[in-house]
Design a binder for these strands. Structure first.
Length: 292
DNA sequence: TGCCAGGGGTTCA
DNA sequence: TGAACCCCTGGC
């Protein structure tokens, strides 16, 4: 993976294991738009860029070399060798097949607080509605982001995801009535305020082991095993996490267990089998389950 | 048009 | 272990 400036365009070349579609559509992120020209527009840490795949590489708009290196390089996990990970996981023939469907998946490193709230919203919910709620939440409580460069001809406004202070200005009633989050309203408000006041130290999880982090997260109302695993994987890059959602459950039962199996058994089996690469394996399986 | 199931789970009994 | 949960969408 190389970053170059060509004809006044920022462009990623020697692209290795990176597909925009596979990376954004594998269920880990909610804050992106797929544009009509096939390009993608993610929002992260109060910034917006647009990425478009071309035969010459991936063209990146609305950023510069410094910002890309500082903010986006890490977000896309470009320092990790996915070729080695895929090779390792492919000793399992089932995984080899799953990986062939999503060779270009990368696990994003997203903001802790945003990831936490987003996956609380995701509980017993569907992706289009989750995306809509997160977008409305950002619009109402976040800040508007100035876009310098034309982003794929789009004229929409962009908003940063609210920080704990901003989201704490809400009330549970407001979240329920205006954002239509239903029974998740109290959970969201409560967690936002626990983070704001420091009752829950969200940064400290980065220095914890996977097990410690999971235990800490699950003390929060609205965070069960699935949500905790997602937050640890997509926020804190704890790749021993193996989130079991309905899709992973389905495909694991189909391919490995050959019968109905409790989520806990599936999660333990995945962690045992894939070890430090569990999170990657889970993403390949999730994408495979939805695409096959 | 109207009813019903089900959805990237979690909680409470 | 099992039902309820806000709300929305798609299928009949």
């Amino acid at each position: 993976m190389k970053l170059e400036l060509k004809n006044n365009n920022l462009i990623l070349t020697d692209v290795d294991s990176f597909s925009l579609r596979e990376t954004f559509e594998c269920g880990q992120a909610f804050r992106f738009y797929r544009e009509e020209d096939g390009s993608y527009t993610p929002i992260h840490r109060g910034r917006v860029i647009n990425l478009k795949e071309t035969p010459d590489g991936v063209i990146v708009k609305n950023t510069d070399m410094d910002e890309f290196k500082e903010v986006w390089w890490d977000y896309f996990d470009f320092s990790t060798d996915y070729g080695a990970i895929k090779k390792h996981l492919s000793v399992d023939p089932i995984m080899e097949e799953a990986i062939s469907y999503g060779e270009g998946i990368r696990i994003l490193k997203q903001d802790y607080f945003e990831t936490l709230i987003s996956f609380i919203v995701s509980a017993n919910n569907q992706i289009p509605r989750i995306k809509k709620i997160i977008e409305e939440m950002s619009k109402k409580y976040g800040r508007r982001i100035e876009v310098k460069e034309d982003v794929a001809g789009s004229d929409r406004d962009f908003y940063s995801f609210p920080n704990p202070e901003e989201l704490s200005l809400s009330t549970a009633d407001e979240l329920r009535e205006e954002l239509r989050v239903g029974f998740r309203a109290e959970r969201i408000w409560e967690v936002a305020n626990k983070v704001r006041t420091g009752v829950f130290d969200i940064n400290s999880l980065a220095g914890m082991t996977y097990e410690e982090g999971k235990e800490a997260l699950m003390t929060l109302n609205g965070v069960g095993p699935k949500v905790a695993n997602c937050v640890l994987l997509f926020g804190y890059s704890k790749t021993t996490a193996f989130p079991v959602d309905v899709w992973v459950k389905r495909i694991m039962e189909d391919l490995y267990f050959k019968k109905e199996t409790p989520n806990k058994i599936i999660e333990d089996f995945g962690k045992e089998k894939f070890g430090d690469l569990s999170g990657y394996a889970q993403q390949y399986l999730f994408y495979y389950a939805r695409e096959r």
